[in-house]
Design a protein around this nucleic acid. Sequence first.
DNA 1: TTGAAAGCGCTACCAG
DNA 2: CTGGTAGCGCTTTCAA
Lengths: 334, 334
Amino acid sequence: MKSTLKDVAKKANLHSSTVSRVLRGEKKLRVSDETRKRVFDAAEELHYSPNQTARTLRMQKSFLIGLIVPDIANPFFARVARSIEIQGFERGYTVIVCNTDEKQEKEDKFIDTLLSRGIDGLIIAPVQDSTEQIQKLVERKFPLVLFDRDFDDIKTNSVLTNNFEASYDAVKLLAEKGSKRVAFVSGRRKIYTTQQRLEGYKKAVKDLNLENSESLIVGDGFSFESGFESTKQLLKLPEPPTAILVTGNLVSVGAMKAVLEAGLSIPKDISIIAFSDNIFSQYLVTPLSSIIHPIDEIGLETFKILINQIDSKEELPIVKKMITSSLELRDSVQ
Amino acid sequence: MKSTLKDVAKKANLHSSTVSRVLRGEKKLRVSDETRKRVFDAAEELHYSPNQTARTLRMQKSFLIGLIVPDIANPFFARVARSIEIQGFERGYTVIVCNTDEKQEKEDKFIDTLLSRGIDGLIIAPVQDSTEQIQKLVERKFPLVLFDRDFDDIKTNSVLTNNFEASYDAVKLLAEKGSKRVAFVSGRRKIYTTQQRLEGYKKAVKDLNLENSESLIVGDGFSFESGFESTKQLLKLPEPPTAILVTGNLVSVGAMKAVLEAGLSIPKDISIIAFSDNIFSQYLVTPLSSIIHPIDEIGLETFKILINQIDSKEELPIVKKMITSSLELRDSVQ
DNA sequence: TTGAAAGCGCTACCAG
DNA sequence: CTGGTAGCGCTTTCAA
């Protein structure tokens, strides 16, 4: 069914190596016009299309990029993936997306699989339960870029957003609006990003003399349920918070549901700001004030850094790119 | 850096073919325990991991599955993709997701690319501007399953939902609630799924003696903007509809925004039912009554049919699987 | 300007 | 039970 170089060669009465040269349009193509025509005609006729697997094996270059994310069903990662895929498409790369569900074992397995498939580079928002695998990649100088998350103890390329500052500013704003008790509904605590946000929150609480209590910090996951349950916990406090800073796309919807189910009003009783952004945020029961990440920029920068690594023959210096998020105020803040 | 079979063989003082046999745990493994141990030790020591590219080339089997969807950032496709990826993972398959943005040229390009990469099978929610490429795949009996969309004139495996009936029932319900003027905000009209829904709508309108006007049928796309603009158009009618049936996840949010921006109330002035389902639907300004597709079931069935095709040596009969959706009533219907 | 041959890393077949 | 060899389809070096 599929034709090979040899088939084309036979039909054109040439050797496969000649056909290969012509078809690839080799730079200093030392080929007669007559020959070239024969090749193209034969290739056309046989619907020849090169076998990428063979090419990969021979050239040690796959035009494959691995992208490992927690969950592509999360709008944030979906859109970053799209952005990266589009970049890749333009340059002839196919990207393989893998979902870890925040499981280190899956991440490890995927890295192995992807490497054995000969990917040219890897983009990853790591689970961060372990550094081992990634450490190894770094050691062997494998083209690698982290995004959204980072390690303190590994020197890698990464594209991050200014979570610390964004968090600090959000709390400050809530305080200025009159809240003395601002709660923090956390995403997965192991995650660098979450930690940065929590740090920002803590610093603001301290600087602004807000109520400083561990019981105002709840949650440890990125799911809807996590947001829902941990917010319910907040509402059971003797003195519930008057404002909440939520981490995560799905978490924020969960938090919102908990508040509403308790018969409270947003923002009258409780204001909410969320690290979250998707097309739905502004059409929720109460439009959600959100800290928005410029997703395309994240995808763009990430890809750019990776492709530089892949293309460059010398060793490149580590790049850390910080992207600035913006706060979009909507009805959920009074 | 990476070790090969040969490296392991040298270290173990054996031939690479022997090492290969041992490492694959060949069925009737005619290998001495002593040898086996030597192999495993050497492999371990060298961190040997087989080169999938070479294996693919040799075995003509890649353990790669292609998945082509309009847009992975659409929650419906994201979740189907996840479901399929999980199935694949369990059976050693890697899935490559490609996004067409509803562009036929992209679909065609992706099919080519995927084939040249030697995928074992293809799952696709086709753009449906052209049948040519898919026709060819069918002719050469390439393992293929369509989902969410189908062609009338091509005999393929497909997994569909009962859009016609669901649409009919939704309109009927709206009529029973008192609406005489039910509008239809359409997704991309070329799409089989959309057509089915429109048919169902039309039949219900006729059967139930509702206002039958072409001006009540608007829209031709799956974007937020499409829903927004075409609904605005509806509201400009001398007699605007009292209920709307919307097709599509993002479209419905657009429709909702148009209604609200016009100062109208949902459901007091206008009821809405949407073909749409995602975690946000129930937390929108007005929780949205939705026709819900059992996504995991869709992913499961699709994968099952594909894997059967891939594994079977004889030719299998065409399978058409119909999945039943369900209507979840929320506040957007009075 | 073109052909021949080697080899990417692996599996499978045939000897011994 | 193990080794040798051919070959998957391609690119690349060396000859002619």
